[in-house]
């Protein structure tokens, strides 16, 4: 037994507090992946997190880095205030849910992305408002039942779910936009690579990683069935892909040069 070998331990970038998340919820996995990236990049002393209202608002208890709570949807604005203030060698990330980011915080995320804020946004998409009790989110799937869409999401009444990666990929500034998932070992390994890429590219521009996640409590499914449900229903609508990376920056970013002389000429 002296051969005992430690092969798995808590990341140094996490505190020893117990997560408050429900059984089967994938927030814990996402937290761990981010913490591992911070630890492996050795940037714990340079990282500032921003966690807004949602199930993860208490994440300041879990990440062992300097951290801001934020109001609902405003994390990219708070992160902007931090990024524009602290030395450039710092790493700033936000950790936001889909109600937060794609509904009340839509202006903040689009404009932070459009300004090319040098931050990493981790977007947890579980197609539901978890913290407030399972209400319909902007990402709720057509026909999906929630506490505020008891007959299923009626697209005639409230439209289709928003695909954030695809939306942000229309902008010029983002340098990395990708969607992953955290429901299978394969997905988890890939998600960590995406997060690592995003953090590594952060100082060159805006980086965005969406992670499809489960909410067994909100969905009314067992953790096991939640994983299967996500695979069956979410992945087809929210394809797992890297939408933007430095090698695939839009040409418009460099080639568009407006002719601003017209006004002067007219005056002359």
């Amino acid at each position: 037994m002296s051969e005992e070998q430690l092969i798995f331990k808590r990341s140094k970038a996490l505190t020893d507090a117990y997560f408050h998340y429900c059984p089967g919820c994938t927030h814990g996995i996402a937290h761990r992946l981010i913490a591992e990236v911070i630890e492996e990049m050795d940037i714990q002393d340079k990282t500032i997190g921003v966690c807004p209202v949602g199930c993860s608002v208490l994440a300041y208890n879990y990440f062992d880095v300097d951290i801001h709570e934020a109001s609902h949807g405003r994390a990219p604005a708070v992160a902007t205030g931090i990024r524009r203030t602290l030395p450039q060698d710092r790493y700033v990330f936000t950790y936001q849910g889909d109600g937060d980011l794609a509904s009340i915080g839509m202006a903040e995320i689009v404009h932070a992305a459009n300004r090319g804020e040098k931050i990493t946004v981790v977007f947890i998409n579980n197609a539901i408002y978890g913290m407030t009790g399972g209400q319909m989110a902007p990402t709720t799937l057509p026909g999906m039942r929630t506490t505020t869409s008891p007959y299923g999401r009626d697209t005639a009444l409230c439209g289709h779910p928003i695909r954030m990666c695809e939306l942000l990929n229309t902008l010029v500034e983002p340098v990395f936009v990708a969607r992953g998932a955290v429901t299978t070992p394969k997905y988890i390994n890939r998600a960590k690579k995406l997060l690592r890429q995003a953090f590594e590219l952060q100082h060159t521009g805006f980086t965005f990683v969406e992670l499809l996640s489960t909410c067994p409590t909100g969905w009314g499914l067992t953790p096991e069935n939640s994983v299967a449900w996500l695979e069956r229903n979410m992945v087809p609508f929210f394809p797992l892909s890297v939408f933007r990376e430095p090698a695939a920056m839009p040409a418009a970013a460099t080639k568009y040069a407006p002719d601003l002389k017209v006004k002067d000429d007219a005056k002359a």
Binding site: A70, R74, A77, A79, G81, I82, R84, T85, E108
Partner: peptide, 25 residues
């Protein structure tokens, strides 16, 4: 740094982030 926010709501939250970083904002 001068930054024009996308809204007053955002501006006050940028204030929160910058103030929390310890600068006069």
């Amino acid at each position: 740094v001068y930054l024009q926010a996308e809204s007053e709501v955002s501006a006050s939250n940028m204030l929160y982030g910058a103030g929390g970083s310890g600068v006069r904002v």
